[in-house]
């Protein structure tokens, strides 16, 4: 060490060689979020005669760690729309605040002109697309449930790229692989909405969540489920998956501590 203050606390050049400043480059491309941190897994939604049902589990994972087990991933907007969030939880919180400020703004106008679920979906998809175009994506995949301008049940998805997709039943994340086949079996293509009751839709969601809990390692058996009808939103946030049977697990071979 010498008497120059700028050298204090530095390894001695005569011992370690001059410091290589190239390690401290501040120039170069600016980097934004390139992977999510704390994440929620699948969202599942089904349209039925007179409304839409939507469900998520209550887990937020930090990598493979089940970090938070009471996270509400269904967020209401007004009394006729609901958004289910998969993906990054902090980005979900950002979007939730955005939705809250929109809700406040909407209520400044007299009744009768509230944004419906379809309007909300259009908007959210634009937000996602704008952010990904700035290389600063909001790392989510959402389902928006509610009603469109004609008063018909509405269910549509938007993802971190701004991609939108709509179908009578939808699932994001792992659910897109595991839940959609189940829903397609229960509600085959061409089945009129009028033939799907609210009870069928809710039961289908519960079945999907159970299968997802069996097979998705980032899921948990506590879940939230919401039903949107003309009467409003019925949201339950502290549910428990019932009637589990792990018998099937016995037949699964080829991983873990199994020796046979």
């Amino acid at each position: 060490m010498n008497h120059f203050p700028e050298a204090w606390g530095r390894p001695r050049n005569d011992v370690y060689g001059a410091y290589d400043h190239s390690y401290l480059q501040t120039t170069g491309p600016k980097a934004h979020t390139s992977s999510p941190a704390v994440t929620g897994t699948s969202v599942v939604g089904v349209k039925f005669n007179g409304g839409v049902a939507i469900a998520t589990d209550n887990l937020a994972s930090y990598g493979s760690l089940a970090r938070f087990s009471d996270v509400k991933r269904l967020r209401t907007f007004g009394d006729k729309a609901i958004v289910g969030f998969g993906g990054d939880v902090s980005d979900m919180q950002y979007l939730d605040r955005l939705l809250a400020s929109m809700d406040i703004n909407e209520n400044y106008s007299p009744r009768g002109n509230m944004l419906n679920a379809k309007n909300l979906h259009t908007y959210l998809a634009k937000v996602f697309y704008k952010r990904r175009s700035e290389f600063n994506p909001l790392w989510n995949h959402v389902l928006v449930a509610g009603f469109d301008g004609e008063g018909e049940p509405f269910l549509s998805s938007a993802d971190l790229l701004g991609t939108t997709f709509s179908a009578p039943h939808l699932a994001t994340g792992f659910g897109a692989h595991l839940a959609v086949p189940i829903l397609r079996r229960k509600f085959p293509e061409g089945m009129p909405l009028e033939e799907i009751s609210q009870e069928d839709a809710v039961q289908a969601l519960k079945d999907c969540l159970k299968v997802l809990f069996y097979r998705d390692a980032r899921s948990i058996d506590k879940y939230s489920i919401a039903v949107v009808t003309k009467d409003g939103i019925d949201l339950k946030e502290d549910e428990q998956i019932q009637g589990q049977s792990w018998a099937f697990a016995e037949r699964i071979k080829g991983y873990g501590a199994q020796t046979v």
């Binding site: 106008s109 002109n113 944004l115 419906n116 309007n119 259009t122 908007y123 634009k126």
Partner: peptide, 10 residues
């Protein structure tokens, strides 16, 4: 942005 005709009062 919203797919909605703007409300008159707005």
């Amino acid at each position: 942005t919203y797919g909605r005709p703007i409300p008159l009062d707005r």
